[in-house]
Computed example of a mutant assay.
Amino acid sequence: MKPGNILTLVILLGLVALLVLVPQLVGSRVVERIATALAVSLVLVVGLQTFTGNSGILSFAHIGFMGIGAYASAVLTIPVQMRGMALPDLYGVLAGIQVTPTVGIVLGGAVAALVAAAVAYPLMRLSDAPAVITSFALLVVIYTVLQHWSAVTNGPRTLFGLPKATTLPLTAAIAAVVIVVALAFKESRTGLLLRASRDDERAAAALGAGIPALRWRAFILSALIAGIGGALWGHFVTSFSPKAFYLKETFVILGMLVIGGMNTVTGAVIGTFLIALLFEGLRALETALNASGAFADQVVGVTEIVLALAMMAVMFLRPGGLFAATEIGPLILRRFTRRAPP
C-alpha cells in the first residue's frame, strides 16, 4: 500500500477511535447516543461512496437497501413471543426463526446485497441522467413494497420489538471495517477500472473494461454495506416505519457525501462528521427557540434549510466537495514533502 493511502487510513481510523473515546471521557449518555448515530451514518455514507464515488453515478436507491437490511434483520431477531403482536401475518416459514442480533445484522446486509444483485444489472447499462432517474425509481419501488408488504413489514404502521443491540463500540468497529473496505476497493482492479469509466466511459470500454459488470459489483458492495447500516440503525432505535427510508433520509445521506466530496473516502468521512455535528447543533437551537417562547409557532425545518444552503454553497465554491479528488493522506504528504530546489 502506498504511504499516502496508509496515512489516509490512519487518519480516518483515528477519527473513528476518537468517536468512541470522547463519550467515555465526557461520561454522557446523550453524547454516546449522538456518537452512535454518527457512526451509523458513517457506515451508510461510506457505503454509498463505494458505488457513487467510483462510478460517478448518483444513487438514490441506497436508502432503500438500508430499509431492506433493517426489515430483514427485524424479521429474524424480534423475539418469537412478540411476533404475534409485531407481525401478526408473518409467514409460517419465518415465524419460528430467531437469530441473535449480530447474526441478524449480517443477514440484513446479505439480503440487501442479494436484492441488489437480482434487480440492478440491467440498470448498470445506463449512465448520466437516465441512471440517476432509474435509481430514484428503484427507491420508489422499494419504498412502496416496504409500505404495503404487511406480512413482513407491518405495512405503513410502526414495526416494534427489535432487541436493542447497537452499541457504540460495535458500530464504530463496523464503521472502521467499512472504511478499510472502501479504501481497498478504490485501489483494487475493479475500482481503478470503474474510475476510468467514470472519467471517460468510451475510452474505458474501448480498452476492454466491462462497465456494466464493474458497476454491478460496486452496487452490490454498496447495497451490502447499506443493509448492514440499516440493520444497525434498526437495532439502535428498535422501532421504525417505511417513512424512515425515503426522501428525507436520502437527502441527508446524499448531503453528507456531496459536501464532503463523493470521489474520496475522506470526503465521505469528513462530510458525515461535519453534517452530523451541524445537525445536532441546529436541533439544539430549534429546541432552545421553541422553549424560549419567542415565536408564536413552533420553529421547525431549520436543519433541512441549513443543509440545503450548505450544499448550494459548497457546490458553488467547491463543485467537487471539500475533498474533491485526492484523499487526505496524499494531500498532507504533498504539502510537507517538497522537492529540494535544483
Rank of each mutant, 00 (worst) to 15 (best):
T36A: 06
T36G: 02
L38W: 01
L38N: 03
A39Q: 00
V40K: 01
V40A: 03
S41M: 02
S41E: 00
V43P: 05
V43N: 05
V45Q: 12
V45F: 13
V45L: 12
V45D: 08
V45S: 08
V46W: 01
G47D: 00
G47F: 08
G47N: 04
L48W: 12
Q49L: 03
Q49V: 08
T50D: 00
F51P: 02
G53H: 02
G53R: 09
G53K: 09
N54H: 11
N54G: 00
G56Q: 07
G56E: 02
G56R: 10
G56F: 06
I57L: 13
L58D: 01
L58R: 07
F60T: 11
F60H: 14
A61R: 07
A61F: 10
A61N: 07
A61W: 12
A61P: 13
H62Q: 15
I63W: 12
G64E: 02
G64V: 02
F65D: 08
M66I: 04
G67M: 12
G67P: 12
G67K: 14
I68N: 04
I68L: 15
G69S: 12
G69F: 08
G69Q: 15
G69W: 15
A70R: 12
A70D: 09
A70H: 12
Y71M: 07
Y71N: 08
A74K: 12
V75H: 07
V75T: 13
L76R: 13
L76I: 11
T77H: 04
I78W: 00
P79N: 06
P79M: 02
P79V: 06
V80A: 03
V80H: 00
Q81L: 10
R83N: 06
R83L: 03
G84P: 05
G84Y: 01
A86N: 10
A86C: 08
A86F: 10
L87F: 05
L87I: 11
P88H: 06
P88L: 01
P88I: 04
Y91G: 11
V93Y: 12
L94H: 06
L94W: 14
A95H: 09
A95E: 13
A95G: 05
G96F: 11
G96Y: 02
G96E: 10
I97G: 02
I97K: 01
V99P: 07
V99K: 04
V99I: 09
T100Y: 02
T102C: 00
T102V: 15
T102W: 13
T102G: 03
V103M: 14
G104Q: 10
G104P: 10
I105F: 05
V106G: 14
L107R: 06
G108Q: 08
G109M: 08
A110M: 15
A110W: 13
V111P: 07
V111I: 15
V111T: 08
A113L: 10
L114Y: 02
V115S: 05
A118I: 03
A118Y: 07
A120K: 00
Y121V: 05
Y121Q: 03
Y121K: 13
P122I: 01
M124G: 01
M124V: 02
R125V: 02
L126V: 04
S127I: 05
S127D: 03
S127P: 00
D128G: 07
D128M: 03
A129Q: 05
